[in-house]
Amino acid sequence: MKITKLILAAVLTANTMNIPVHAESQETNSSASTLSLDVNLESDDAYVIDPENGQILLDQNSDEKIYPASMTKIMTAVVVLESGISLDQTVTITDEMLNGLYEAEAAVVGYSTGDTPTVRDLLYGALLPSGADAVNALAYTVSGSIDAFVQAMNQKAKELGMGNTHFVNPTGLHDDNHYSTCKDIATLTAYAVQNETFRQIFSSSSYTDTLGNLMYSTVAGAIERDNISLPGFVGDKTGYTDDAGHCMASYAELNGMKIITVTAHAMTDIYDTAHLKDASTILNALNSWSRKTVLSSGDTLGSYMAEKVIGRTEETVTSSQNITADVPNEAKIAVTTDLAESYKVTNKDQTKQLNVTITADGKTAAETSQTFTVPKASDFFNRVLIFFRDLF
C-alpha cells in the first residue's frame, strides 16, 4: 500500500508540474505562395509539370474546357501501341477510311485507296504530318470501326484519371462533345512518353514510309524557319481548329528536369506560331532552373523533446527519403517542418506524421509527408508512472 501511495503521489505531482508539452502540429508557413514560372503567354490556357517529381511549374486555367484538336492523336497512338498489333503489319487503305476527310479539310498524309502502308507508317503519319487518313486507317484496323476505337480511347482516358476528357473521334476534328483540359492532356502526354516507340515517333522530325512517302513534323519546318529556341526540346504534338485555336503538347528534358508542357486556345491566325512561341518562352524561362536534391535520406529534419513523467530526452528526426525540387538556380532554398517541440512519451511506440515543405525564395516548391516514431518509455520507473498517469 505504501508503494502504491508513493507512486500515485509521484504521478499527481508530475501531472501538476509546469512541464511544457507543445501541440503536436505546428503550423508551417502557409502564407507562402507556390513557386511558379512568371511568363506572359499568347495561349489562354497552359499547364507545365515535371511528372517525375509531380511538381507543377505553371498552372494557367489548367482545368478549363478546351478542344484538343490534333493533340487527340496522342491518345490514338497510345491505344494502337497498347493493342498488341504488330507494327510491321500492312494495312490496305479503303474508301471507308478516307470518307469525309476531304470535305472536312482534314490534314492527310495522302494515302489513296489500295495503298498498303504498315502500322508503323500509319503511326508516323498520325503524329508527324497529323494525317487523318493514317488515323482512320489505324482505328479501323485495330478496332473494326471508328466508334469501337473511340470507346477504347475513352476507356483509356478513364484509366489514366482524365476526368474532364471525352473523345468523339480519333482525329481531333471539331465536335462540341470532343473536349479535354490542359491538365488532362498533360497526364496523357506524360504517360505516352514512357513508351519507347511513341517517344521515337514523337521526337522525329521526318520519316519515309515503306511506300516512299516522305513525312515531316508539323513544327520542324516552323522551328527552323523562325529560328525558335526550344532548349531541351524532345518532341511535340500540335493542333489547330477554328474553335480550338493553336494548341500544343510537348516534352523536354532540361537541367535534370522532365518537362511536360500543354498550351491551348491561342486564338491567332492559322499560320501563326503562337504555340511554338509559348513553348519557347516557357523552356527558356526554365533554362535558368534545375532539378536539385534538397534532402537526402538520412538528413536531419529536426529534433524534439520526448517528455516522460520524470525526465525528458532529445530525439532527432531524419528524412526517410530523397526529396527533389525544380528551382531557380540562384534561389535560396529552405526546409521547414511541422515537427512539434515536444511529444508525450507513452508505453507504446507512437507513429507520427511529419509534413515537410521546401521553399525557394520563400515560395513553396515541394511538399511531402513522412512518418517518424516517438519511442516508448524504456525505463521501468517511467513505465509504471505512465501506466498510472494514463488511468486518469
Rank of each mutant, 00 (worst) to 15 (best):
S320W: 03
L254Y: 11
I66V: 07
A249W: 08
D50W: 02
C247V: 05
I223Y: 02
M248G: 04
D115C: 05
D299A: 10
Q350D: 09
T316R: 03
C182D: 04
Y216T: 06
K352L: 04
S180A: 09
T116P: 06
G144H: 03
T261L: 14
A331D: 11
I270G: 11
L12H: 07
L8I: 04
E315A: 03
K65W: 05
T373K: 01
A14M: 12
Y179R: 05
N29M: 14
G245E: 12
C182L: 05
S31F: 12
Q321L: 01
F392G: 01
T141E: 13
N382W: 00
M215N: 01
N53M: 05
K65Y: 09
T351Y: 05
A222M: 15
A366C: 13
K2N: 03
S205I: 02
T197I: 13
L37I: 06
K348Y: 13
L339Q: 11
L12Q: 02
L87H: 06
D95G: 14
A69V: 07
D226K: 08
Q370C: 05
G235I: 03
E24H: 07
A23V: 14
K277G: 10
T90D: 07
T13W: 10
A23E: 15
M257G: 10
K277T: 12
H246N: 06
K183M: 14
G54K: 02
G84V: 09
T72G: 03
E82H: 05
K292P: 01
Y191M: 10
D361C: 09
G239I: 07
A186T: 04
G110L: 00
T241A: 11
Y191W: 09
K376R: 15
G100T: 06
I228P: 00
C182G: 02
D226F: 13
G161I: 00
L37P: 02
L339W: 12
A266G: 07
Y102H: 06
L230F: 00
T187F: 05
A46C: 04
D299N: 08
L160I: 11
E105V: 03
E314R: 01
L127P: 02
M97W: 04
N99M: 14
S112V: 00
K65N: 04
S36I: 01
F387L: 15
L385W: 08
